[in-house]
């Protein structure tokens, strides 16, 4: 049996048992709404466009935050890979920052930027920057000395050597850094939105929860999960694999 088929049957069985439990009244609708009600809530949300607006708003914040995170992260990564002093100072601090969930910055961010988009984007940026910087640093430090020696015998040095050899040689790490930055940023985004104003997927989740609309809560959770899985598996893992193959890793 193909994995796809197995996966499909597994999901159908789970949904079936869940629906059955709800119909037999094993748990209250407020505790765990049935799959059909979740589907209806999702359908309604899409039809009256609220979920679509949420998606657009969330993705806008994510895109802005992620782009800023990748740019700053790459800059810091290159700096700490090239300068020993920067690595000893900024580099060691990055690890500490990386181990703190970026959402803890939200209270400060709200004081600095107000209760708005900017505060959420700030948290998203922090979520992605450090992991990107650490991967870029590793990538640049791990460039095979053989490539560098070969390029030097061909007259390449300095900035030319960096642009034409060091940078492309570390692309696999850039891809991994981007994938992890996306994953951290995605989580930071939802957490940030839960605690601020809408529109946005996280905001709608909290709003639905406040009004006891558990069907919509689960519906939004499903959207968040499905988007996360699709971006990670269908986009990033594929790019990562093909890059690794070509780079001979």
């Amino acid at each position: 049996m193909k994995p796809v088929v197995k996966r499909f049957i597994f999901i159908v069985v789970i949904l079936g048992l869940w629906e059955l439990g709800s119909r037999m009244g094993l748990w209250a609708e407020l505790i765990l709404p049935s799959p059909t009600n979740v589907a209806i809530a999702l359908f309604d949300g899409i039809q009256n466009m609220t979920l679509i607006y949420d998606l657009v708003a969330s993705f806008r914040r994510l895109a802005i935050g992620l782009v800023i995170a990748l740019v700053i992260g790459t800059g810091i990564g290159v700096l700490i890979a090239k300068s020993k002093t920067a690595d000893d100072t900024i580099g060691s601090m990055l690890l500490a920052f990386q181990s703190v969930p970026s959402i803890v910055w939200l209270p400060l961010a709200m004081m600095w930027f107000g209760l708005n988009d900017k505060a959420v984007i700030f948290v998203v940026v922090l979520g992605g920057t450090f992991v990107m910087a650490l991967n870029v640093r590793t990538g640049i430090k791990n460039v095979s000395p053989l490539y560098i020696r070969a390029a030097q015998t061909m007259g390449s040095k300095g900035i030319d050597l960096f642009i034409r050899v060091v940078f492309p040689a570390s692309i696999p790490y850039f891809v991994t850094g981007t994938r992890l930055a996306w994953a951290f940023a995605w989580r930071a985004l939802i957490a940030g939105e839960l605690l601020t104003t809408g529109p946005g997927l996280g905001y709608t989740l909290r709003y639905a929860s406040d009004f006891g609309n558990m069907s919509l809560v689960i519906g939004v959770m499903i959207i968040i999960g499905v988007i996360g899985a699709i971006v990670d598996q269908l986009i990033f893992q594929r790019i990562e694999k093909s890059v690794a193959r070509r780079w001979g890793l």
Partner: peptide, 19 residues
């Protein structure tokens, strides 16, 4: 220092895999 008047071939081909 290294120069283009001396071409070098290493034990590993050292080709750049991205091009």
């Amino acid at each position: 220092k290294p120069g283009k008047d001396r071409g070098m071939v290493f034990q590993q081909a050292a080709l750049f895999p991205w091009i």
